[in-house]
């Protein structure tokens, strides 16, 4: 009887996880630009997968190790891949949506570029002398 209740709790948690996965992909569909899509997709898919695996752990407690490895793996790699993708998107200049309020990174990069250009100019002038 006890195991039966545990199994039903586990199944419900797994369904909650899969609902989060569904919400993540709806967000992926609805969001206006690549960065907001990364926001919705990564967060929801991380918690969705973790909850699903946790629910399955209630059903088969003897597989503890496998579930733990998968949970740790998802928790560590998912933020990394989202960060790498976002940086690539910014470097190949995927446009930000029109709703965007500020872009501090662009300001910083412009300052850096102008400083580099200035240094180059100074160097060329010195070599000319």
């Amino acid at each position: 009887m006890d195991t039966n209740i545990l199994e039903i709790i586990g199944g419900s948690i797994a369904i909650a996880g899969s609902i989060f996965l569904l919400l993540g992909s709806i967000g992926l569909y609805r969001m206006p630009d690549a960065y907001n899509r990364i926001q919705a997709g990564t967060k929801a898919s991380t918690l969705g997968t973790i909850l699903s695996l946790l629910g399955l752990f209630f059903i088969f407690p003897s597989w503890f190790g496998k579930f733990m490895v998968l949970i740790l793996f998802v928790l560590i790699t998912n933020p990394v891949s989202s960060h790498v993708l976002a940086r690539a998107a910014y470097h190949i200049m995927v446009p930000l949506t029109k709703l965007t309020q500020v872009d501090k990174w662009k300001e910083r990069r412009e300052i850096d570029e102008s400083r580099k250009a200035h240094l180059r100019k100074v160097k060329i002038q010195k070599e000319g002398e």
């Binding site: 989060f20 919400l23 993540g24 709806i26 967000g27 609805r30 969001m31 206006p32 630009d33 960065y35 907001n36 926001q39 919705a40 967060k43 929801a44 991380t46 918690l47 930000l96 949506t97 709703l99 965007t100 309020q101 500020v102 872009d103 501090k104 990174w105 662009k106 910083r108």
Partner: peptide
């Protein structure tokens, strides 16, 4: 924070007007 983040995303995704106000800050 992770659980809060997900409910936040769910709220934003499911509301029909899509209440976002994005930007890059330092």
């Amino acid at each position: 924070a992770l659980v809060k983040a997900n409910f936040d995303v769910a709220r934003r995704v499911l509301s029909p007007s899509l209440p976002i106000n994005p930007g890059i800050v330092e």
